[in-house]
Design a protein around this nucleic acid. Structure first.
Ligand code: SF4
Ligand code: SF4
Lengths: 142, 142
DNA sequence: TTAATTTGGGAGTCTTTTGTCTTAAATAAA
DNA sequence: TTTATTTAAGACAAAAGACTCCCAAATTAA
């Protein structure tokens, strides 16, 4: 992955929630089972996501999580960056020391383009858009 | 980075060696200093690279390392994979669970293309080609 | 032969990430 | 009210990655 497990779990969870019927509450354990994520670990992540305002949480019997509007209109990149710390590891393929746009290694030109496109790929669409289109293909292939 | 520090250090070291005059020996400590890599840590990596046949090593005063032909004609990807274990983490931007070419998430099509291009970027050129072109730009900008 | 230098090899530490466990708080149902 | 359920919180454990240190082996120079 381009980001860490924690970030990946966060995205998978939030996309799972985005695919649920409106206002439906889903338990942490259900998400963990469906997405095959370590249950307690995911619970922690969801806890933090609740603080960040990406999910709403409800305790007690019948409780669970649901996605917020904030998360629905956020991009995948935004959520990942919030959850797993400052920036994403998208700097360089080689990580050479002496380099910049003026002093580029032979891979830089193509890499810079790819890096931009990746960045764009995960920041230009909202979570809800991605989730909806995904639901569609899941339905079609049934 | 797309790969780990260890892999990055290995590549930087081998590219450094590739830029040296033919048959020149360079001490581990010199590479470490130039490339700003923790000295003892790099020593370990070079040790392993010697086993893999990517560098030749010579002990004692006047000793050091030099790149082998194997490394010169290898790709960056090949060396990284050898040094830091099985495969590179280039699987997916989202890491969704239910997905394949038949059941793709909305990002898959573009991602698959980008993934291929990244793969290609670091596997199609030899270390020596990259190093030579890099030396050129370093010279020009002087 | 002795001393200095440089890599080889292995043990060990520190940090970050990942994952587990236990208990408390809130809520809902019995 | 009591019990069951579900999230909140925090301590803890395990694993991986990054980095350090020490001493042995080889080689060169004095
Ligand atoms: S020049 Fe660009 S591609 Fe090359 S090492 Fe620097 S940032 Fe990476
Ligand atoms: S469909 Fe493709 S892009 Fe989407 S999660 Fe699967 S592998 Fe990744």
């Amino acid at each position: 992955m381009i980001y860490t497990k924690t970030g990946e779990y966060a995205i998978r969870a939030v996309l799972y929630l985005a695919r649920q019927p409106k206002e439906a509450l889903v338990m942490s354990s259900e998400i963990a089972e469906s997405e095959e994520i370590p249950s307690h670990y995911l619970a922690k992540i969801l806890q933090r996501m609740a603080k960040y305002g990406y999910v709403d949480s409800f305790k007690g019997r019948g409780g669970g999580f649901k996605i917020t509007e904030l998360a629905q209109r956020s991009s995948i990149l935004e959520i990942v960056e919030r959850v797993e710390g400052p920036v994403i590891n998208l700097k360089c393929v080689t990580g050479l020391k002496e380099c910049s746009d003026e002093n580029p290694c032979p891979l830089h030109e193509e890499w810079a383009e790819l890096r931009n496109r990746i960045y764009n790929l995960i920041s230009s669409k909202s979570v809800q858009e991605v989730a909806d289109k995904y639901s569609d293909t899941l339905k079609k292939n049934r």
